[in-house]
Amino acid sequence: MSVSAMFVELQGALTADQDIREEIRKVVQALEQTAREMLTLLQGVHQGNGFQDIPKKCQKAREHFSTVRTQMESLKTKFPADQYYRFHEHWRFVLQRLVFLAAFVVYLETETLVTREAVAEILGIEADRERGFHLDIEDYLSGVLTLASELARLAVNSVTAGDYSRPLRISTFINELDSGFRLLNLKNDSLRKRYDGLKYDVKKIEEVVYDLSIRGLNKEAAGGAGGEK
């Protein structure tokens, strides 16, 4: 084969590659839009009167996840299934954001950490690589770390709104999460960088708990929490 014929062929391959990327980018933009809407919706819980209708907000957010699932469905068709990591960079950010949103909704509903399988189900994707478009473990963990900083904020705002029991529960949750992350041997990559931020969230929540306890507010809250349960 002549040199120029070879380069024509290579150019064809590169153009095809670019077309795929273009298609992916379009779907990812739509996903980002949905994620933004959901975030705006859930930000409501930080406002004083937002605490009352958390279940309603969660329900609304869950409706958005059905849009996400159809968008994910269309994303899957844009590239060959066995080349996930070739185009991974394009949806990495939005996927982490969606993991966070799913984890946040689940936390608000049940106050537990969403499992990787459950997130995959909420987003309409797979948990294992073998079965198709999946949720990469690092993306899952990144999303969970975002949840931690959101909860640190929530702890502060729930005190302002007069809910003194929530920070204590958040504190237990974050502590467990922290011990979980301590088990991991992270490489010096972006995930590790974000993990390094977790300790500040832990610290923040501990300070809130401290403030409550020296003022005797946690006892009142503990009584209240016991009553709730």
Binding site: L113, R116, E176, G180, L183, L184
Partner: peptide, 11 residues
Amino acid sequence: SPLMTSFKSFQ
């Protein structure tokens, strides 16, 4: 706890 066991598998 479930969280710790899942993190062990992540490790």
